[in-house]
Design a protein around this nucleic acid. Structure first.
Lengths: 141, 141
DNA sequence: TAAGTTCCTGCAACTGTGTTGCAAAATATT
DNA sequence: AATATTTTGCAACACAGTTGCAGGAACTTA
């Protein structure tokens, strides 16, 4: 509880119910969250618009980042400390489990360098891998 | 013209105006197309629904494939010959130019193998790189 | 802690994207 | 050419996301 408040203050954000609730939802969750996940959550009964704006504020401040997915839904996950305001460093691989549908940020897996054709200059790389996650693999055995 | 008809026949599709027009739009375009691009195109004045259904048919038949993008819009591009019905082999890197907004399928750039943590099994990888494309780089000089 | 300022929230309304059902029209089949 | 099958266009709908604005919170300063 105290942590959430200090955390928000450090980012220069005023302390509001929606920000506290949504932030702690992220810290309590292993995987990434969609807007709909948050809206569905009983403890977070705010207006859709408020949730959108809170998420956008967090993205702007470098608290969370968006994840591109194959089925074109937007997912959000907590950033690492290296993310600064307006300057994301989410150079990690995202993993989507086909079985439980959880999205993971694999922070320790760096994106391999890709050799582009002559004339192409890379600035940002997004890698999304889908398959079976650690948890589901164990269950299936 | 003849080509388009034979092409569609080979995929077991009946020959209709919308399929011919939309298919030739793809063959005439370097980069990938969004649904909106097609709808905007003067030569393709079909109903929105028809365009959606035609694109879906092409995806189902393995003629085009969808591309995941960071800003969560759906893009479509022609498949290579290796794509079969219901079985896409689009193991290539997608490149989005920040300057001209064109999306390229870099067919000759294969996706590098990524080492996942213990217990994670990869089935499909999507790599989207953004930056400056060959064309825009030349112009800027 | 009270007053005023600033910022956030909820509501309503709107835009854009994609889907579905159905009748009419076009294409394929014989 | 006549019939059966597909495809199209329209209307209506579902859903995600955005914007403007008034009222209500949270901050600031004294």
């Amino acid at each position: 509880m105290e942590n959430t408040i200090d955390f928000l203050k450090n980012y220069g954000l005023s302390i509001t119910e929606s920000r506290k609730k949504i932030l702690s939802l992220f810290t309590q969750t292993k995987g990434a969250l969609a807007h709909a996940d948050i809206e569905r959550n009983a403890s977070v009964n705010f207006d859709r618009v408020t949730i959108y704006r809170t998420l956008q504020t967090f993205v702007d401040k470098g608290i969370i980042h968006t994840i591109p997915t194959a089925d074109n839904s937007v997912l959000y996950a907590l950033c690492k400390d290296t993310c600064k305001e307006g300057h994301h460093h989410d150079n990690h691989v995202h993993f989507i489990c086909d079985s439980c549908d959880t999205t993971y940020c694999l922070d320790n897996v760096t994106i391999p360098a890709v050799v582009l054709p002559e004339g192409f200059i890379a600035k940002q790389s997004d890698v999304v891998i889908s398959g079976i996650c650690k948890n589901c693999e164990v269950i299936k055995e």
